[in-house]
């Protein structure tokens, strides 16, 4: 498997994907290149490093195409940085063949905006220990492409049920209640698109699920260049492992979508729902995430992640339990005082 880095045709500097301009940028001569230009440059511009020397368990060793240093990665890493020259390295071989993604959503939020968003998020959280905010921590924020499965499905189905309309009125001292019963039938075609399932088993994969959804209309056909300047993970969840759950979940959504058209009744009971897949498609995609991993003193690992397209955040933050306890006790005391005052003055 080869490691790739993209070189500027003007100065031979490293090309990185720039989220702000959605183009490739040379950090040295400040040149910008579109995806088409990069495609035209072709493989001859992409410098290839050596083959992997050793693949043992999860650790794999590559040679950096820029400085020749050894790069050690785990088996799902698809893009990284050289530890010595800090140049971006795309491990192209990791995303070939059946691991070649169909689609990608490029980064749209820059690192600066991600840091800003992180600070806003943490500042709102009053019970985070101060140490969590330190500069080093914030600078360790990384842009990572996480792997997802996308599931599109079309169903032919029907929903049958019973609905009631109850009307009540009063005449003199007699109360009348009219109940009308209806038999309901809905039949037709339901199409559901872009159901995203995380395709990484790693512990911090939960981060990838918490920041869904993405704006899928901006998805692009996959190009290796988008990974330049970011980290990337290759999937380790195969279609066979997730398809059964995905199908069940989508069938439930299809039923809900069709049943939601039964409106204007006091009560609705769905008695029978049948859905049959007439078309389905699984696609493999990489979506962008800004993430910080934080190891606390007690060896607990905390996470923060941001959808690098929509800015939605998700995290598991360290908690200052003393502060939380104090806030709880103060709340309880305030309620107790209000309760006693109520008992004294009102009741």
């Amino acid at each position: 498997m080869a490691s790739i880095s993209y070189k500027c045709p003007n100065c031979d500097g490293e090309l990185l994907f720039d989220p702000a301009s959605q183009q490739y940028k040379c950090e040295y001569c400040i040149s910008y290149f579109t995806q088409r230009q990069l495609d035209d440059m072709g493989q001859e511009q992409a410098q290839e490093g050596g083959q992997s020397e050793r693949e043992q368990d999860d650790a794999v060793v590559y040679h950096c195409p820029s400085c020749g240093a050894q790069i050690v990665t785990d088996s799902t890493t698809a893009a990284t940085f050289c530890y010595y020259c800090h140049n971006p390295v795309v491990l192209g071989g990791r995303l070939e063949g059946r691991y070649l993604p169909d689609l990608v959503i490029p980064f749209e939020i820059t690192k600066e905006k991600a840091v800003e968003g992180f600070l806003d998020y943490v500042k709102k959280k009053k019970f985070v220990p101060r140490a969590f905010w330190n500069k080093e921590q914030i600078e360790s924020i990384s842009g990572v492409y996480f792997p997802y499965w996308l599931y599109d499905v079309t169903y032919d189905g029907s929903v049958q049920g019973e609905a009631k309309n109850i009307r009540s009125w009063r005449s003199g001292n007699v109360q009348y209640t009219e109940t009308k019963q209806y038999r309901i039938l809905r039949e037709g075609q339901v199409t559901l698109k872009n159901f995203s399932v995380n395709a990484l088993k790693k512990a911090n994969a939960v981060l990838a699920q918490g920041i869904l959804p993405y704006r899928f209309e901006t998805m692009k056909p996959f190009r290796m260049g988008y990974l330049s300047g970011f980290l990337a993970e290759r999937r380790d969840v195969e279609q066979e492992e997730m398809q059964s759950d995905a199908r069940n979940t989508m069938k439930h959504h299809a039923k809900t979508l069709m049943a939601d058209t039964i409106t204007g009744y006091s009560s609705v009971t769905v008695q029978n729902a049948v859905f049959r897949e007439t078309d389905e498609k699984f696609r493999y995609a990489l979506f962008p995430v800004w993430t910080i991993t934080y190891k606390a003193a007690e060896n607990n690992v905390y996470y923060y992640s941001m959808n690098a397209q929509t800015g939605k955040v998700c995290g598991k933050l360290p908690i200052h339990y003393g502060k939380v306890l104090l806030a709880s006790i103060l709340s309880a005391l305030a309620v107790f005082a209000i309760g006693l005052a109520g008992g004294y003055y009102l009741w």
Binding site: S158, A163, Y182, R183, I184, L185, R186, E187, G188, Q189, V190, T191, L192, K193, N194, F195, P213, F216, H253, A254, L257, M258, T261, I262
Partner: peptide
């Protein structure tokens, strides 16, 4: 993310 085309809509 879904769309619906009803063939029968009976009440």
């Amino acid at each position: 993310f879904g769309s619906l085309r009803l063939r029968r809509n009976e009440n």
